[in-house]
Amino acid sequence: MRKIVIAGGDSKAEYIINSFRKQKDTQLVVINPSKEVAERLKQACKIDVRHGEPWSRRALEDSDAFDADVFVALCDSDTDNFAACLMAKEILSPSKVICVVDNPNNVEFFEALGVPSVISSTYELGQKIMNEVSINELAKVVANVGTSLEFIEFRVLHEHAICDRFIKDIRFPSYASIAAIVRNGKAIIPNGNIEIKARDKLYIGTEPVNKKKVYDYLQSKRPLSALGAKIAAVGENVRTQRANRKKNEE
């Protein structure tokens, strides 16, 4: 049974409560600093809601929130959430603390000041926009792990030099690594004996500073002679299939 503490928040809290309320393996502990909101959540979600300030030691100690797996701070004020997360870390020792902030600048400040997981919808939106427009339509950043690692999604085309080659034969840059390949909707864990095909989606982990170099490498085209040979092989294959079909029909 996992225990999730939801501290503060009005409609956000209601959404999260409703997302987890019916899961039998989840125990929710809800604390809200507003008496009115606490009462409203109680009625709307049919759940016990404790009225108290989640940044107060006493409120946390009285709330049955010990040994929580996750503590989520959703108060309106960023600094209230900051204090609630630090107090929860001190008193409850949850496995994970999540702090929601309005001011996107606070994401990195709060992380630097001891709150490990900070979420800002504006910050996330900014990152998403930056990632979407940062490379081009073939490649985009799909995940950021802190500020030191990013995962790029890259769609392979026939013309790319890495296409139709085994991973063991590709001299992939040392600053990047293929984490997964998705082919026809199915995930493949890469190893040296996997051949990269056109239309594969590669998920590549790299540092943000090397993103452009990785993209340039992936984007490099195969020599025209090789491409010509490939086209000829495909053409030959099509011709053979047609001939076989004709033969069968006769």
């Binding site: 900051f82 400040f109 630097a112």
Partner: peptide, 16 residues
């Protein structure tokens, strides 16, 4: 006059 704001400022002044 706001303990939570003061906490944030004190931490930022010390750590950052």
């Amino acid at each position: 006059g706001d303990d939570n704001l003061s906490l944030f400022l004190a931490k930022a002044c010390a750590r950052i």
